[in-house]
Amino acid sequence: MAVEGFVPQDGSDPMVPEPYRIVERRRETSHTVTLALSSAGEVPTRAFQPGQFSMLYAFGLGEVPISISGSTARRDRLEYTIRGVGAVSKALCETPVGAMLGVRGPFGTAWPVAGPENRDLLIVAGGIGLAPLRSVIYQVLERRSHFGNAFVLIGARTEADLLFRDEYPRWRAAGLDTRVTLDAASGSWKGSVGVVTSLFPNVEVRPNRTVAMLCGPEVMMRFAAQALRDKGLSPHDIYVSMERNMKCAVGFCGRCQYGADFICRDGPVLPFGRLEDRLVLQEV
């Protein structure tokens, strides 16, 4: 499962960003934007695996870790879906097409998309957590027949916060059972209301052949993983993508330490079984 991201082979400083240019910019929600970046430097646009992230640098303002949300098939671009929450991410959201950003990475571990044939997939996303899972969804769509049942369960705060909403019909049409639930809905909403785990009762989980991939707020993942365990899933078949403060992304700064793992290096994608003991503790 552990994959190496970008490692400079020439011994150059992994803290130095590479120049990338914004080739496309799409507003997803009022606070979320997807940027497609292509290398503007000598090195071609780097390849990645679903689940990995990059450090995106806005000139002068700083750097933030952002998951890659695009397709591995597009070798000419890296897509990032960014929610503007801090100064840097807000600036990234507002950067226009044609502008340059600094990019380091991709870094970190990947979702276990490759694996035995005919496995069932349970993709559980909360909020912005759908972004790194979209890369998985794209891979599944390309090779749909290699998988058994495939569910995409999406939780969002409100209808307006749903990411990639116009893609759901295509996902469904290709045989991904895509379901949505909201935290809060107006009277006109026809779908489900409740946290993402409230979708579980109607999902048939086949314990020994299912791999679950969870991405969202930590507390959501903890509840969801617990609920999946109750459904008989092994904690080693449940993968979560963790978030911690990151500055270096290469295991030097120590900020993202979580137990014996550096989330930047040993994560962000980790089997729930490895984290179980820590997730029950506060302030780890």
Binding site: V85, G155, G194
Partner: peptide, 15 residues
């Protein structure tokens, strides 16, 4: 559980 989780507003205020 559901209500408690939603009370946390886990997806967070964008601002």
């Amino acid at each position: 559980d559901d209500v408690q989780l939603r009370l946390l507003d886990v997806y967070g205020e964008p601002d």
